[in-house]
């Protein structure tokens, strides 16, 4: 899926969590728990049973009081990667689904490197294939194989997929949605589900150049890849311009949602090399560090 050179470049990256990690296992993310971490968090009076190694002896000598130094505990972070496998993703050159697979693979690899718990799922009309939680670098090949096995089918229903996935108890974590977000039902319901569980969310919108600037004959019957419906359209410069602006507005709406809720957003144009997206855009966006 990736070259060794690219993987070496990923070795130095880590997923940046906007919220404190809620993982139960030791990891690299700051968590709300205090304990045996390296980062100083607070002071509190010593209580019986506390670890005397954390008593601040300097304060005791100055103030004759036993004060305990508290440290933030570093935990792992659950990462939920969702790859849109609807038929609308099976489009464009390079293929959008293929692009989404590689993007998900890169993020999963970075997460596994940093001992995060990685969950990968595909979705279309509903939840599709799911890869059980993986942790550790040695799980990367399984993740890659899973991603390569995802096939395009069905329509897009983001809300149905989210509802179904988060119906089960999930530790709060980072949810990464990789999709074209061409969902007739819109994003609101899916976003509501994610907000309800207060996940850290990042949306990656995969866009083909043909979608931004379609090359169409003057008269055409547009056949929807998902619905199969046909729409006869006379392509005029005005109509094309309206299409472009509507498409841009559609992308901007998605970005606005993300900004509104402090989520991450990245627009992944399939004509841009995946290396550039991962190494530059996602770092600039703050999704990777």
């Amino acid at each position: 899926m990736f070259t060794d050179a690219f993987l070496r470049k990923l070795d130095v990256l880590a997923l940046a969590a906007r919220n404190r990690a809620h993982g139960q296992l030791r990891g690299t993310h700051r968590s709300r728990r205090v304990g045996t971490g390296m980062v100083f968090a607070d002071y509190r009076p010593y209580a019986e049973g506390d670890d005397i190694r954390h008593i601040d002896w300097g304060i005791y000598l100055r103030m004759d009081r036993l004060i305990l130094r508290l440290f933030e505990e570093e935990a792992d972070q659950p990462v939920y990667l969702f790859v849109d496998s609807s038929l609308s993703m099976d489009f464009g050159q390079p293929n959008k689904l293929d692009y989404a697979r590689r993007l998900a693979g890169a993020l999963a690899y970075v997460a596994l490197l940093n001992h995060d718990r990685v969950n990968v799922s595909s979705f279309a009309e509903s939840l599709g294939d799911m890869l059980p939680t993986r942790r550790g670098r040695n799980q990367a090949p399984q993740v890659f194989r899973f991603l390569e096995g995802i096939e395009a089918r069905g329509r897009t229903s983001l809300s149905a997929a989210m509802r179904r996935y988060f119906a089960a108890p999930r530790t709060r974590g980072l949810v990464v949605l990789i999709s074209d977000f061409l969902d007739p039902a819109g994003l609101e319901e899916a976003i509501a589900v994610l907000r309800r569980f207060r996940h850290d969310v990042a949306l990656m919108q995969v866009i083909s150049p043909e979608e931004i600037d379609p090359q169409l004959p003057e008269e055409a019957v547009l056949v929807d890849a998902e619905e199969g419906s046909a729409t006869e359209v006379e392509i005029t410069p005005g109509l094309l311009e309206a299409y472009r602006s509507t498409f841009e507005r559609h992308a901007q709406d998605i970005e606005s949602y993300c900004r509104k809720y402090g989520w991450g957003y990245a627009r992944a144009l399939t004509s841009v090399a995946i290396e550039d997206i991962v190494l530059k855009m996602l770092r600039e966006e703050g999704l990777l560090r």
């Binding site: 489009f91 074209d180 061409l182 169409l216 008269e219 019957v221 056949v223 890849a225 998902e226």
Partner: peptide
């Protein structure tokens, strides 16, 4: 007119 496939209408 010619039929053209699009990702989504």
């Amino acid at each position: 007119p010619r039929r053209v496939a699009v990702s989504s209408s």
